[in-house]
Design a protein around this nucleic acid. Structure first.
Length: 148
DNA sequence: CGTTTGACTACGC
DNA sequence: CGCGTAGCCAAAC
């Protein structure tokens, strides 16, 4: 496993709290969740960026059942399910997402342009001192409205 | 007690 | 756009 954050229990609780905000029919990624959580005290920002996604993964791995935490909505940054291919949990995750009308392409990827979550609303984040999540969608190459 | 192994991502070819 | 690799380090083997 990966080194754990200084305050694992608290960190995991925060991760689950955020995951609970993901609406049905949308997906987030380990990196996006991590981008909302400030680096814990004592952790260099550079190290955090490198380690955080793993920490989120560790948290998801021990998600407490029966708490209404939609763990299935958290996938890898490439849009793929990160569990071992063919494993029981991986198959289950895909089924749960398909039940929410989330589609997978022929390479097993979810289209972020269609299903990406944009994060909790600003107020929710502010109350908890969290950061604005990075967007999973392509930076809008605003098709310059041809003024004339 | 040495190796392998992760619910990851960014980066270089 | 796809594939391999580094970086991290506590557990499981």
């Amino acid at each position: 496993m990966t080194a754990s954050p200084p305050n694992v229990a608290q960190y995991n609780a925060l991760v689950w709290e955020i995951v609970k905000q993901i609406p049905e029919g949308q997906v987030s990624t380990y990196g996006q969740i991590a981008s909302m959580i400030p680096a814990p005290e004592g952790v260099e920002s550079a190290d955090y960026i490198r380690l955080a996604p793993r920490w989120v993964g560790d948290a998801m791995n021990i998600t407490p059942p029966g708490q209404g935490i939609p763990w299935q909505r958290v996938i890898g940054g490439k849009g793929t399910i990160s569990l071992p291919e063919g494993s029981r949990r991986a198959v289950n995750q895909r089924e749960l997402l398909e039940q929410e009308a989330i589609n997978f392409d022929d390479k097993g990827r979810v289209d972020f342009e269609q299903f990406a979550w944009d994060g909790p609303d600003a107020g929710w984040l502010n109350e908890r001192g969290l950061n604005t999540p990075k967007s999973l969608r392509k930076p809008k190459t605003p098709e310059q409205p041809k003024l004339f």
